[in-house]
C-alpha cells in the first residue's frame, strides 16, 4: 500500500489556498500477498506468510506498511507429473502441414493400437495432438485437437470404445524436435497415443 500526501506548494499563495479544497481519498487496492507453493505430493498447498497475509485482509488499515508490488508464487516444478515416456513410432501418427487427415501409411499404427485397445476394454489412452511451431498457441491448440479427434475417430471405427479414449491437444507447446526447419516441423505435426 502506498500513501500519497500532498506537498505544500512552494508558491504561489492562490494555489496554496485551493489545495485545501480538494482533498480526496482514493482507496486503492489493498495489496499484499501471501506466498504459495505447490509441493509434492499435495495438489495445492498454501504456504502463507502470516505477516503479509494480515495486511491483505486488513485492507487499508495498515496501509503504508505492506507492499502491493508483491506476487505470491506457486511452484509445480517437482509436484507436476514427469515428462511422459515417448510412445515410440508404433504409437505416433504424423500429419501433413495444415492437415488432419490420417494418411494411409499410418493405417498399421491405427490398426495395431485398435487391436490392443479392443482386446482390453480396461485399457485407456490419451490421444495427444501436436502441431509445428508456426502460428499462434491457441489456434495451434485447436489444430492439434482436430488431429487428435481424427485419430480417435479412426480408432473407434475399428471397435475401440469411446470411453477408452480421450483426445487432447498440446498445440505447439511440446515439440518432439526443436529445429526451425521443415524436417523438424514434420516430426512435430503428430498425434501420440499415451497409456493412462
Amino acid at each position: 500500500m502506498i500513501k500519497n500526501q500532498s506537498l505544500r506548494p512552494v508558491q504561489p499563495a492562490a494555489v496554496r489556498a485551493l489545495a485545501g479544497l480538494s482533498l480526496c481519498a482514493a482507496a486503492l487496492l489493498a495489496g499484499c500477498a501471501s506466498g504459495t507453493r505447490l509441493e509434492p505430493p499435495a495438489p495445492v498447498e498454501d504456504r502463507n506468510n502470516p505477516a503479509l497475509n494480515s495486511g491483505a485482509n486488513a485492507a487499508g488499515t495498515d496501509a503504508g506498511r505492506t507492499s502491493q508490488s508483491q506476487v505470491a508464487g506457486v511452484d509445480l516444478t517437482n509436484g507436476g507429473r514427469n515428462a511422459l515416456n515417448d510412445g515410440g513410432a508404433g504409437r505416433t501418427v504424423y500429419f501433413d502441414y495444415d492437415s488432419y487427415a490420417v494418411k494411409d501409411e499410418y493405417r498399421p499404427v491405427i490398426e495395431s493400437n485398435a487391436k490392443r485397445l479392443a482386446g482390453d476394454r480396461n485399457r485407456k489412452v490419451l490421444v495427444e495432438g501436436h502441431t509445428d511451431a508456426r502460428g499462434g498457441s491457441e489456434y495451434n491448440l485447436a489444430l492439434g485437437q482436430r488431429r487428435a479427434d481424427a485419430v480417435v475417430r479412426a480408432l473407434t471405427l475399428l471397435g475401440v470404445q469411446d470411453g477408452q479414449l480421450e483426445a487432447v491437444s498440446f498445440g505447439k507447446e511440446r515439440p518432439a524436435a526443436q529445429g526451425d526447419d521443415e524436417a523438424s516441423f514434420a516430426k512435430n505435426r503428430r498425434v501420440e497415443l499415451k497409456d493412462r
Partner: peptide, 15 residues
C-alpha cells in the same frame, strides 16, 4: 521490471 513468478511448472502454461 520487477518480475515475480506467480506459477512455476514443468509443463506448458499459456493464455
Amino acid at each position: 521490471q520487477g518480475a515475480q513468478d506467480a506459477l512455476k511448472s514443468p509443463q506448458p502454461i499459456i493464455s
